[in-house]
Design a protein around this nucleic acid. Structure first.
Length: 637
DNA sequence: GACGGAATCC
DNA sequence: GGATTCCGTC
């Protein structure tokens, strides 16, 4: 059982970060930890112990030394290393086992979802050291509800040794170019068996993968488009529940997936198990058994759900061409239409999901079957009432392009009154306790998804996105399309943002595909004409929009000119107050001019400020000038 | 020992 | 971005 070297657990090449490439010093600490953990040579230094995924650093100094050697940081010590480990807390990669010294616990679920988002599901290799399937055959059993239900403490079972190939590869890639002669990697290399050394990466990994099933079969969406979301972990603990499972295959190897550790390392009833933020909560009260076919479906759904709701936005930065459905929600009762079938629009997935530098063929090989879907509406957002409805109703547009942290700034600028949306760093928003859902969906079946431990990263980051805000504002002003204004209307001079929004393929038209909502084109090719929304409304250039507003306000101001004299008298008494307002407005204008709002955030800010109250007419004038200037700067729509 | 902020490096 | 380094706090 515990023969990691023989397990053959294979990750596809794309699963390996370039940091893991041979000679790279950029190996991440958690990689390294796993690397050590799989080596029996280092079991006196660090070893799996305790609950599943839990390990103890038996010799902190030595681990630090090894790490330092690996990173060519001779000054490394446990204090520094532990600091690095603590940074993993927020990332949910790791957490501390309270009360146990030097004991940490991997959150493989998060670890893999973030770092191995496109784990190959077509490989025929299965981790033999994965948690066992008690019943064998094609059936899987979910972990016990509570740790107390399992008493077995087999070290072997605890140890997620299916990382063997990963670690093997990491070991291969961990050859340090340090010349101090203390390279940990040399030790690790030596620790590897001859068979491992003899097998090149191509054979050891890539060779294991094909033949693969096409993605459209692997990631085929269920007949019920909403089925994915309907099988949430807590409300409907059904086979599609998006929590990890032990994907051991049946004799026929129906699944035969090369699963992410998150999936494969799920504890079984034999394993002691302590709920962890992301592993346990969906499992609570779940005790299932189902066949491999169900498992396959689940895995498909799970994988897709990862992309819909759970994946770290960072992972998406590598997949710039994803098209995000832009739900138009005149009738919130149509959430099912959000779930698109990948095979229906294969062109949508023509973009590459591969992220391996220099390995573009991988991405071409595996076009994305995923599209982001509007996350469900959370309780808090639902309860927030209609005041937020306008914002929520267009949140779907925001999700399409808001994998940036910059939206937080915008959100704060937009927030008037008590914030209804809690904006947190990405690293913090995955907290199960902190999940706040903002979506346009009213369908309860969807809502529990966002209560997953994985959190709804996209949801929260997306809904604050300036694109969304601007679109929302434009709609509110009646200037925009009845549908979401394409983000083309947004000035986006920030090249950084360009990297963080999904790019739209040349053939993005899903509008004719029977979708109940139009797609939002997150980014168009340079020079591309403003798209026509499915409703037929052409994008109104921001410049023109500002111009209109400018004209209106000019007219209004001219009308109010007659009152100016009287106003001055009043102002003479209230100069201080008005000045304060002017200062405030000026400050906000300054934010715009200073680029305080990216991606058209200025328009958003301005939009919320308009029309100004009569007492701020002068400030409005300044604002208008700033607006005009801004509009001139924003040439594109 | 553990935690996390802050500055800094790469 | 992912550490590394330093440090104050508990």
């Amino acid at each position: 059982m515990k023969t990691p070297a023989d397990s053959g657990f294979a990750f596809p090449d794309w699963a390996y970060k370039p940091e893991s490439s041979p000679g790279s010093r950029q190996i991440q600490l958690w990689h390294f930890i796993l690397e050590l953990l799989r080596k029996e040579e280092y079991h006196d230094v660090i070893a799996w112990q305790g609950d599943y995924g839990e390990f103890v650093i038996k010799d902190p100094d030595e681990v630090a030394r090894l790490w330092g050697a690996r990173k060519c940081k001779p000054q490394m010590n446990y204090d520094k290393l532990s600091r690095a480990l603590r940074y993993y807390y927020n990332k949910r990669i790791l957490h501390k086992t309270k009360g146990k010294r030097f004991t940490y616990k991997f959150n493989f679920n998060k670890l893999v979802l973030v770092n191995y988002p496109f784990i190959d599901m077509g490989s025929g290799r299965v981790p033999q050291s994965a948690p066992p399937v008690p019943t064998g055959g094609n059936h899987f059993r979910f972990p016990p509800s509570t740790p107390s239900e399992v008493l077995s403490s087999s070290e072997e079972l605890r140890s997620p040794g299916m990382f063997s190939s990963v670690a093997r590869r990491m070991a291969r890639g961990s050859v340090s170019d340090c010349s101090d002669g203390t390279s940990t990697n040399s030790e690790l290399e030596e620790a590897m068996g001859a068979d491992e050394r003899g097998m090149g990466p191509e054979r050891a990994y890539r060779g294991l993968l094909p033949p693969r099933l096409p993605h459209d079969s692997f990631f085929r969406v269920y007949p019920n488009p909403a089925g994915l979301a309907r099988h949430g972990p807590r409300v409907h603990p059904e086979p599609l529940s998006p929590f990890p499972v032990s994907p051991l295959p049946g004799p026929g190897g129906l699944l035969a997936p090369t699963l992410s550790p998150a999936l494969s390392m799920t504890p079984t009833p034999h394993l002691p198990y302590t709920p962890s933020p992301s592993l346990s909560s969906p499992m609570l009260g779940s005790h299932f058994s189902f066949n491999a076919e169900d498992m396959k479906h689940y895995l498909q759904a799970h994988t897709q759900s990862v992309y819909n709701y759970h994946l770290s936005p960072r992972a998406f930065l590598h997949y710039p061409n994803i098209i995000i459905p832009q739900p138009h929600r005149p009738t919130p009762e149509k959430p099912a239409a959000h779930h698109l079938h990948g095979q229906q629009h294969p062109s949508l997935f023509s973009h590459s999901l591969g992220q391996q530098p220099g390995g573009g063929e991988e991405g071409q090989q595996y076009p994305s079957p995923f599209k982001l879907q509007p996350p469900p509406l959370g309780r808090k957002q639902r309860e927030s009432g209609s005041s937020l409805a306008a914002s929520s109703s267009s949140s779907s547009s925001s999700q399409s392009s808001s994998f940036t942290g910059s939206s937080q700034k915008i959100n704060s600028a937009l927030s008037a009154g008590p914030p209804k949306i809690k904006v947190e760093p990405i690293s913090d928003i995955e907290s199960e306790e902190e999940v706040e859902v903002t979506d346009i969906s009213d369908e309860d079946e969807l809502n529990h998804i966002d209560e997953d431990d994985e959190g709804d990263i996209f949801t929260r980051t997306a809904r604050h996105h300036p694109h969304h805000q601007l679109n929302n504002h434009l709609r509110a002003n009646g200037n925009g399309s009845s549908h979401s204004a394409p983000p083309h209307a947004n000035p986006d001079d920030d090249p950084d943002d360009d990297e963080e929004v999904f790019k739209t393929p040349a053939t993005p038209s899903l509008s004719g595909g029977g979708l109940a909502f139009p797609l939002i084109h997150l980014k168009s090719e340079p020079g591309q004409a403003a798209p026509i929304s499915p409703g037929g409304t052409r994008c109104i250039p921001l410049k023109l929009r500002f111009k209109r507003r400018w004209s209106e306000d000019q007219k209004m101001e001219a009308d109010g000119e007659r009152d100016e004299a009287e106003d001055k008298k009043v102002r003479a008494n209230g100069e201080e107050e008005v000045g304060g307002k002017r200062e405030e407005v000026g400050r906000r204008v300054g934010e715009v001019e200073n680029g305080g709002g990216r991606e058209g955030a200025g328009g958003v800010i301005l939009g919320l400020m308009l029309p100004p109250p009569p007492t701020q007419r002068r400030a409005s004038s300044e604002l208008q000038r700033a607006t005009a200037q801004l509009s001139l700067e924003n040439t594109g729509c």
